[in-house]
Design a protein around this nucleic acid. Structure first.
Length: 586
DNA sequence: GCCGTTTTCGGCCCGACTGTTTTCAGTCG
């Protein structure tokens, strides 16, 4: 039995601690800028790790994590063994906690936070506000009346704006802004694209980046700041303008020369980690890579790239799709020619999770089926909620029989399409299912879902999910963490253990496509792929338009390096039915 | 503090914009 940590640290908690050390070290000037960056880099990598940090520690493999060397590994080890970290506690004794809070105010970085603290004795955002209001800050070098006003605005903003908003909320806004800018016409807006984390389909975004190729930037900037969505212009320059929308979202617009579009789009799509890795690769080959060009280090000769493909090709790489650009091994894979052939929306042959008016959906069985068929799907599963979920009127054995008659009747109409009948069955508090086995056994597909008791202990929750998976009638585990982006964190499941069990049983885990779920997320999809676990990219549609969400699920799966073969609903009907049947016999 | 198909020591991404500056530091991405 592996050694147990004194508490079950999560990757996010360890990452937060490393970020905190980085901030403290910087504000206290204990170490130089490279150490600071090392802590933040380690934090970043730990936060986006595929595996569980506790397990990695147990395997003694901490130093295999990029950016984690002897010193940081030792600190993590101390946290695992003792639950605290002396180094961090020393730093916290030195720097008052409110000084770090000031870093959250836009426009305040470590240098200013330190100056306010050391020169004026300011140790909280509240004190900072008072000092700005009373004109004290302007007595400091580099500060004036305008800086004070900006800081006050920043503090007001701090209270009203969420950190990151779900992509499903941000992307439609971005698409609308792009449409509005396109109306300037192709003479002015030669090219336009979303960039940044939204182009990479990250599940949440902190801001939006929009890129325009133009030889005439001024009208683009002018149009941008006067769009109806804009509530405030934060900064406006010749090539870069930032605004805030009414919902608080920041949008950055950059204008590039068309012949530099490739390097620019590459650069502003990120991620930062991917770009740094790419830049380093370029340097190894004698190139300096910027958003403007590739430049020979020796001769200074510039190579302009008007497409991203040219940028990657010059460095000896195939074009890397934005979803993969997170520095999680994609550059190495590209060098080796082993990039995955990612699943695409067009690979999906059907959807295996949807609702109708028989539970909490808004459309009939027939309407949902026709909508799926109109999309060119060759199958579609109706999986209404079972009884046992308090808030919803669910289906039981009798109602499922009634649904079966409707489904059988509809299936007579189609030659090219098959409607499947299933259920999203409730996993009860003890891990049993809300419907008896003989009812489940008659269905084409059974999805098990934990909706209630998400605040149970990790062991209990994990056990429930695993027991559900072990029921021979269950084919798929729905939205495994139960999170709702921006609203609810999700249960404290041991996803690693659940994936291992799914691998052992040969069952599928859902990638729920609702932009508010995206569950499994990209990182866990990647882990599922490593373990050979099949996934099912499901819409969980409650209305016809919900089928559009499948794009979000596909993108999430792509971020997790999923190939069509790993996705059961890319398989032809016959193969899927065989696979579904196999479970019933185990 | 991390890292290495040129390195176990000497590097570490880099440019736009702002405010307060007579030439630049700080912040941000």
């Amino acid at each position: 039995m592996a050694e147990q940590p004194v508490r079950p640290w999560t990757n996010a908690e360890i990452a937060d601690i490393m970020d905190r050390i980085g901030d403290l070290v910087e504000v206290s000037e204990k170490e130089g800028p490279f150490q600071v960056r090392a802590y933040h880099r380690a934090a970043d990598n730990i936060r986006h790790l595929d595996g569980d940090i506790v397990r990695i520690w147990q395997e003694g493999a901490l130093e295999d994590i990029p950016g984690v060397g002897k010193a940081i590994a030792k600190k993590i080890d101390e946290l695992m063994r003792t639950g605290h970290l002396r180094f961090l506690e020393e730093l916290e004794k030195e720097v008052p906690p409110g000084v770090l809070d000031m870093l959250g105010v836009p426009g305040i970085g470590p240098k200013r936070a330190r100056m306010f603290w050391k020169k004026l004795g300011i140790t909280s955002v509240e004190e900072l506000k008072k000092a700005a209001e009373s004109g004290k800050l302007r007595t400091l070098p580099g500060m004036g009346a305008k800086s004070e006003r900006k800081i006050l605005e920043g503090i007001a903003l701090l209270q009203s704006i969420p950190d990151r908003i779900p992509l499903g909320e941000a992307r439609p806004l971005a698409e609308r802004i792009i449409e509005e800018l396109e109306r300037l016409g192709p003479e002015i807006v030669e090219k336009i694209s979303l960039a940044g984390s939204a182009r990479r389909w990250r599940e949440t975004v902190g801001d939006l980046d929009i890129l325009v190729a133009s030889t005439n930037p001024q009208p683009v900037m002018d149009e941008f700041v006067s769009l109806p969505e804009v509530s405030e212009v934060m900064l406006k320059g010749e090539t870069k303008t930032s605004v805030r929308l009414h919902n608080g979202l920041q949008v950055d617009l950059r204008v590039l020369e068309p012949e530099r579009w490739g390097t620019g789009l590459q650069y502003f799509t990120g991620s930062r980690a991917h770009n740094i890795a790419l830049r380093n690769l370029a340097l190894e080959q004698g190139w300096s890579l910027s958003e403007y060009a590739l430049k020979r280090v020796d001769t200074g000769e510039e190579k302009l790239c008007s497409t991203e493909e040219e940028v990657y090709e010059t460095l000896g790489l195939p074009w890397i799709t934005p979803e993969l650009r997170e520095d999680r091994g994609e550059i190495k894979a590209a060098l080796e020619g082993s990039l995955p052939h990612l699943v695409d929306l067009s690979d999906l042959k059907g959807d295996l999770h949807s609702h109708t008016t028989w539970s909490d959906g808004s459309y009939s069985i027939e309407q949902m089926a026709e909508a799926a068929r109109d999309r060119g799907f060759s199958y579609h599963a109706i999986t209404d909620h079972s009884t046992g979920l308090g808030v919803v009127q669910g289906v039981d054995g009798d109602r499922l029989e009634a649904q079966r008659r409707i489904v059988d009747g509809l299936n007579k109409k189609w030659k090219d399409f098959r409607l499947l009948l299933g259920v999203e069955v409730e996993v009860m508090a003890d891990g049993s299912l809300a419907l008896p086995d003989e009812v489940l056994a008659r269905l084409d597909v059974v999805i098990a879902a934990v909706h209630s008791g998400l605040n149970q202990e990790r062991e209990t929750l994990t056990e429930r999910a695993i027991l559900a998976l072990r029921n021979p009638n269950v084919d798929i585990l729905a939205h495994p963490t139960g999170r709702l982006l921006g609203r609810r964190k999700g249960g404290n499941f041991d996803i690693e253990a659940i994936l291992q069990e799914a691998a052992r049983l040969g069952k599928a885990i859902e990638v729920n496509s609702s932009p508010w779920r995206l569950d499994l997320n990209d990182v866990f999809v990647r882990r599922a792929m490593e373990l050979g676990v099949k996934i099912s990219i499901n819409s969980d549609a409650h209305k016809v338009s919900g089928l559009d969400d499948l794009l979000y699920g596909v993108k999430t799966a792509r971020r997790g390096w999923a190939e069509p073969e790993n996705v059961i609903n890319t398989w032809p009907l016959e193969r899927l039915l065989d696979w579904l049947k196999r479970h019933d016999q185990t």
